[in-house]
Design a protein around this nucleic acid. Structure first.
Lengths: 155, 155
DNA sequence: CAAAAGTAGTTTACATGGAAACTATTTATT
DNA sequence: AATAAATAGTTTCCATGTAAACTACTTTTG
């Protein structure tokens, strides 16, 4: 039949149907909200989530191979290359090609990089504190637990 | 001190520290995984998540204003314009400018659009079923509930 | 060991999504 | 009514991220 255009209503009450319990949809929106909160707070300090996360992991695992970091953080190799270049240019990261496998690149933080991570650590991790008061602390914890299981980041 | 580059280990056992309970990080990874699952299953049918979601909502709310759809789905206006154009070109969507406010655009599905949504509905929503067996059905439900609260998509 | 296959990372060329400035229209102010 | 402010959507231009082809090196295989 194809209800001809303009049956109307724009009463702001938008019907979502089963979409509102679609995991894919909810994850996308939740991620956008979390990033917004993150950005509004931290972009002023020139802190980008992806960059900081990468530096953080390298800081905890000095000498790790570039590709391993990429796989762990679900960053594609092509993107990783650019990320690493920017962080090297910024003076935060060191690349080193080991003699035993000269295809690979091992990453570590410079002194400046270590300072950067140390001094922004609290600001960065505060996101997980909560930000939005829509969840109680217990619910937030539970959400983290379920997401860890879902993503396979369990210990 | 700046441990000089290459102190170490590439033993695949990557230390994440507090990152592994950071909501922002987990949401990003979860969303990537969900989209991957989605794509691998549905891209063959030319079904993109954002496009289908938009058509779905217009189908449930014929005549809705373009901007309202965008706000509801957290799509930025600039992006919405392109999405709508593609769906109009594909023959799924109708734009109509009402006389009472000629700035706005009301959206509705064409017959072809309705067929498209109807015939792909199950495939699309099956994502929420689970896909990954890492969560039990109860856990998946619980995750959905928490995400709905987090995002503000509660009834 | 030479050829073939595999692995690590880079490059290029493109797709996706967004911020800011712009056009058109409507509503508020004087 | 005339100007100013607000709103809806579009355009342009840029940032982010990716797939596919490529280079360099290493491992396997006959």
């Amino acid at each position: 039949m194809g209800q001809s255009a303009g049956d109307i209503l724009d009463s702001e009450r938008v019907e979502l149907g089963e979409l509102s319990s679609s995991l894919g949809f909810l994850l996308r929106v939740a991620q956008l909200q979390a990033f917004d909160a993150f950005f509004n707070r931290l972009a002023p300090d020139g802190l980008k989530p992806g960059e900081f996360t990468m530096l953080w992991v390298v800081g905890l695992n000095p000498g790790l191979r570039q590709g391993t970091v990429a796989r762990t953080l679900a960053i594609k190799p092509a993107h990783m290359t650019k990320l690493v270049q920017r962080m090297v240019d910024a003076g935060y990261l060191l690349r080193k090609t080991p003699d035993n496998d000269r295809r690979s690149v091992h990453l570590s933080l410079t002194d400046k990089g270590q300072e950067f991570v140390a001094s922004n650590r609290d600001a960065f991790l505060s996101l997980h504190g909560d930000e939005r008061a829509t969840l109680t602390p217990e619910e937030a914890d539970h959400l983290v637990t379920l997401l860890r299981r879902f993503t396979g980041f369990e210990d």
